[in-house]
Nucleic acid binder design. Sequence first.
DNA 1: CGTCCACAGGAATGACGGGCGG
DNA 2: CCGCCCGTCATTCCTGTGGACG
Length: 400
Amino acid sequence: MTDPLDSLFSRVLGARIFADRERMRPDYVPDDLPHREGQILKLAEILAPSLKGSRPSNIFIYGVPGTGKTAVTKYVLKKLEAEGRKIGVDLGLAYINCKHDDTNYRVLADLCEAAGERIPFTGLSTSEVFRRFVRLVDASGKMIFAVLDEVDALVKKTGDKALYDLTRINQRLERTRISIVGITNDLKFMEYLDPRVRSSLGEEELVFPPYGASELEDILSRRAAVAFNEDTLDAGVIKLCAALAAKEHGDARRALDLLRISGEIAERNGDPRVTEEHVRMAQREIERDRVVEVVRTMPLHSRILILSLHLLSGKGGKGGSTGELYDLYSSISKNMGLEPLTQRRVSDLINELDMLGIANAKVVSKGRYGRTKVVSLSISTKNLKEALQDDPRVGVLIRR
DNA sequence: CGTCCACAGGAATGACGGGCGG
DNA sequence: CCGCCCGTCATTCCTGTGGACG
């Protein structure tokens, strides 16, 4: 597998950590997916009738990020297609990432392409594309699989009309069928849907539970065996990566990223082996990048809020209540000559920070003394400072 | 066991900006 | 190109509530 030149270069450059870096990339789909055998089987079972020419049920797949939803789906469809080719059944596969293609038009255009016709990327009305698609599919007699990855993005942006149309397509088709596989991270997603769409889309459901620490460890070591050179990983490295990622909701992508970046750091430093120290550095680097990225795109008031939070928890305490936080926030705002936002609004901003993993917010009832939300920062001070640094107005206040 | 604190968080509404169809 | 519509941010007003205190 290893290109002779690759190994030559790495010997010359002394960078011998990775054997095949490609296999550590987040979008790489491996040939074996450990601990997802059940899901693979179930999905295959549901989709298999297509090989006999009957329409498989529509499926809905749930699971938090990094639980292998996309990988399993791609894997099963690939196998299915191969099997179909063997026995002479032509299947049309459309893998659509709705985060990327987030308009009805583009989704339909992709589907047409899967059915074998290119559609101009603009110029036709959406309903015209829809009609063409129906005609096309009916004429070709192909069974079409529409995989809608991250459907929640599509629905949030354009509503569930597109999904509704798709589920109804079968009624307009005479010779063939279309089967929909919806994938989402959002566990409550179904509630947003029209009941009619819900019932026809959710004929079958498949849940991907988060990986546990030992499962992550297994996944990592299998991947490391092919991606890293032998004997370049210290004993505890994989275990540590797995443990850190398990804390982050069992996200396998996070675990793999962690391991890859650890390797890259070791390589940059010219170290022969990846150590636990490298993993910790990688962890910090990932967090820093995320925080800086998030904070940079945040509006001024949210930054002031973060700053207030920082000052509040800086004074020894473990965060503070909404009231304390709001008081501090509004006095800072006034000092800067800004009209503070309402408490109501700030309450939403706090929830937002919580969602983004920058703060922890927890409702606590203190009985007689009210009911509040205790908020604390969940990122390191160092990263925070770096993230706020480049803001001319807030940055000044944090150097202290 | 009821009260009552200190907010949470829903609903209605308005201001603003940006995209899209005609 | 324009107007319309829609989404986002923000405010106002409001009802709801866990549980220590009395």
